[in-house]
Design a protein around this nucleic acid. Structure first.
Lengths: 248, 248
DNA sequence: ATTCTCACTTGATCCACATCAATGTGAGAG
DNA sequence: CTCTCACATTGATGTGGATCAAGTGAGAAT
């Protein structure tokens, strides 16, 4: 079953705005009320910086709409994205005062924030929130480690293919994907942001996208809208172990 | 203060063998007894594989002596190390049955293991263990992200210098380091393992080590014993932001 | 319409690191 | 003391992606 990776947890923020992956699903009514009390929303425009590395950060948050990215920058300007947060992802450190990296809105973005100190208190009272957070952090660690394999060992083409499959898995209208068939979605990142994600230059990203297009692996409708005629063909380009079943 | 990164948490397993970073320091006597009940030791020889990716893993553990590594392997044999565990580091996932990557002993290794299911139960009863684990996982995530910057954007020479400074910070006899002065330690990895860590080939690792030696940044006494005459000079080679204070 | 701008594409050239191929070395076995 | 084997170094050559440098095209401002 090559589609194993498509079984991705979905956001849980339907009618109740705090029903995100992080805090909830199992929350009792009174816990929800406590969360409501320390909750507020913030919106950002594409390109805006939310916090700079080293700044103090007095909230944790859940992504409601849009995409945020975590990036590290070297003195001479070299940049590497180290985290990509999509809706339902969690942002922040309950027990750390300052942010370890820049947090930027890569698209228009809405966050559901919780004030940090009271949230920390709530975690103590409510073990399942801490457990959920641990689980999410471990998932993020797994993602970071797969990303490390990508950065350290994959070719430019494989990097692009892997990136597209990651975005497709989370972002696409995956209506009825069953191993074949078309998948379509909009890229939430510029070529430059993709380059920062993948450890490439934007020129290389562009060239490889053109290459995949020329070879019929993807279609480009406009600059940002991607159509993948056959997801399995794309997966073959990722270099990933395709005999499935390895992951938990 | 360029030596900020030297303030690394020390192992806490002096006389009590389960006083590792993971579980303890704040444990009450009865909790220690419960831990004792599910605890056992295992030893491995250098090169031995502890678990293969996908295997079930019925324990979590703390590294007592030696070095373990987590590696991901692609179908065609390309390998990337994604975790390096030194004494006091934690290994495993309390609430996951199977290992997501190969775990290998890179030196002779002793683990202090806890049976997974009872450990999970203990976590529920003892919130501070869960908190400690979350904190450690977040630290590991930070380390993974710094590693991503290394893999994606640093030159071979910077990668080597960063690696040496990471190992020195954790492994060296840092008696009285204060910004200058000699630091010495043994490399716990072969050139090949270093290459897997850094996303390079072993030849490039060897060449860059020779380069640093020729430039007087390090001395090589034998193949594995490293002497760093001036740690700050090494830090200048890492490409890291040197004006300090950014990190938490 | 016209120009400006911003994101992207495409081309030509270069170089850091990979690859392929010997050669060196030192610790343990006999 | 010297064989051997695993690990490490060093050299010669090739190449994928970076770098430098023009284009292109679509939408916004004038």
């Amino acid at each position: 079953m090559p589609s194993k990776q498509l079984a991705f947890p979905q956001a849980q923020c339907a009618d109740c705005p705090i029903r995100h992956r992080a805090v909830c699903a199992r929350c009792e009514t009174d816990e929800l009320e406590k969360l409501e009390a320390i909750k507020y929303y913030r919106s950002y425009e594409a390109g805006q910086t939310i916090v700079w590395a080293g700044d103090s950060m007095d909230f944790v948050a859940s992504v409601v709409r849009g995409v945020a990215s975590l990036t590290q920058t070297m003195e001479d300007g070299r940049r590497q994205m180290v985290g990509l947060l999509l809706p339902s992802d969690f942002l922040g450190r309950p027990n750390r005062e300052s942010a370890p990296y820049d947090v930027t809105a890569t698209t228009d973005l809405q966050l559901c924030c919780f004030r940090r100190t009271p949230f920390l208190g709530l975690m103590d009272e409510t073990p399942h929130i801490a457990h959920r957070l641990l689980e999410m952090t471990l998932d993020e660690l797994d993602a970071a480690r797969e990303w490390m394999l990508l950065l350290g060992r994959k070719t430019a083409r494989e990097k692009i293919a892997s990136f597209l499959s990651i975005i497709a898995r989370r972002d696409a209208t995956l209506s009825g994907y069953g191993g074949m068939g078309e998948v379509a979605f909009d890229l939430p990142l510029t070529r430059e942001a993709m380059a920062d994600y993948l450890g490439l230059t934007l020129e290389t990203v562009s060239r490889q996208m053109s290459g995949l297009k020329k070879d019929g692996v993807i279609r480009l409708e406009g600059k940002r809208h991607i159509v993948i005629p056959d997801f399995d063909i794309l997966l073959d380009e990722t270099g990933d172990d395709s005999d499935g079943g390895i992951l938990s």
